[in-house]
Nucleic acid binder design. Structure first.
Lengths: 252, 252
DNA sequence: CGATGGGTTGATCCGTATCAACTGAAGTGG
DNA sequence: CCACTTCAGTTGATACGGATCAACCCATCG
């Protein structure tokens, strides 16, 4: 199924675990994933599709730009980054995905993925064949709604990122990033105030539109101000309110 | 229907032209609008929905942030801007829409629009009630596909804007903006190389993440380089290739 | 006729990029 | 086991692009 340049670091089908499948109805992620907001009866419909699970190791890519679109993926475990390739070959991070979040929706438009998706650690995903789910959507208005809502949510998410990139300075950007991360972790049952970053300073910088040195300096500044404790990728938010204040005391 | 703070400059229903409706099948915009890529038989299904037309005068808003989501709108004539309101009340432009483009898709996620939509000139839109179209989508896989593709396209569009905001300098941004505009105008049968901007320097700047003075200076720089002729909002692209070169000779 | 709003241009300032040196941790191989 | 490399991260010095502040032009409008 991988059509375009399957490389050594390409996961695609190679690491598919045996015929291991997942049922949405009893999945621990059902409240943050595709079934979110669906009626139990419709979730049962999803169960029949038997989404297969795939492991993707750290550094491997799940799909890349231009590759034929067949599946949407839901993160089961671990963290991914989505990237876009610039004209000169460098890449820009367009998002980080964690448990329950969907990846690959940008492929629907033209039948080819518009971004690359790479695992930041050892991960596991549910593979959701698009023709199956759109087939089922034809019979269930509820599922169709769910998919539409998820796509719309993605649009809204990008809106706020645009806002961030268009009108915030370094401290505001990093504060927004950390608060967003914190909130998503909390939603998934992890601590909102102490966590481990899965991405490098360079990846954070690329996502936030700044250089890695600036990310590092900004972490140090927050440390200085007593807002954070930072030890490499281990972060502790000491003063969440101060972080929020940085974020919306946007003066310029 | 306008729930939140209906203001003097709020169009919503006030200026609805009599019971004037539109049929997609014989609409001149059918190739760039909702029916794009649909089978003629499915477009006929759309005809039964009888989308009503509404005029929105320059400066009036079609919908705003937080307002209950009911309709998607398709531009029939004229230009709109979509904006987001920042925490401190200032607004940031997130997009410009012209004939055939859809507005309001961000409202599906939570049942309320996530952005504001304002006419930049006297305009006309088709009002597409969301419940009607999603009802019809349940019976037509083709229409459902069309809507999904349009939403996905919106995601891809925002991707590229993020890229622009995250990693381009002033000249690259303005070049990308002008090339994008040029291409969309051409697609609609207008000249690709000579056109009238419907938005102010400040609005362009907000969209591109730079100040209005910088926009102005960058126009002047292009003028200097013989790439453009600029007279206020009237633009003539003299050297399209040079503009493309600016856009992808991204050095930093 | 003065007021207002969009646009241009100049002078200056500041935030972040850039370049560079350094640290510590984690391999790698003799 | 120790030199060696490599990579992520931090921190300092400096450069530069764009923000900011300000003056001015011009068209429109009450």
């Amino acid at each position: 199924m991988p059509l375009a340049c399957p490389s050594a670091s390409d996961a695609s089908f190679a690491t598919a675990v045996p015929p291991l499948t997942t049922h949405c109805s009893n999945c621990s992620l059902r409240d943050v994933c595709l079934p979110r907001g669906m009626k139990p009866s419709d979730v049962d419909g999803l169960d029949d599709l038997q989404f297969s699970r795939t492991k993707v190791k750290a550094g491997e890519t799940l799909y890349h730009e231009g590759q034929t679109f067949r599946n949407i993926y839901a993160v089961r475990m671990g963290t991914f980054k989505s990237t876009l390739t610039l004209a000169d070959g460098r890449e820009q991070v367009s998002g980080f995905q964690m448990a329950g979040e969907l990846m690959g929706l940008d492929g629907i438009a033209d039948g080819a993925y518009a971004s690359n998706c790479t695992a930041l650690e050892d991960t596991e995903v549910c593979t959701i064949p698009y023709d199956q789910i759109s087939g089922l959507a034809a019979t269930s208005a509820d599922l169709q709604q769910a998919v539409s809502r998820l796509m719309s949510r993605e649009i809204v998410r990008e809106h706020s990122l645009m806002m961030l990139l268009g009108s915030m300075n370094a401290e505001e950007r990093l504060a927004a990033f950390l608060l967003n991360l914190s909130q998503r972790l909390k939603l998934r049952g992890y601590s909102a105030f102490e966590f481990h970053l899965r991405m490098s300073r360079a990846e954070i910088g690329s996502y936030l539109g700044m250089k890695l040195e600036t990310v590092s300096r900004t972490f140090s500044a927050f440390l200085q101000q007593g807002i954070l404790e930072v030890d490499k990728r281990h972060i502790r938010i000491l003063d969440p309110m101060a972080l929020k204040r940085v974020f919306d005391t946007r003066v310029h």
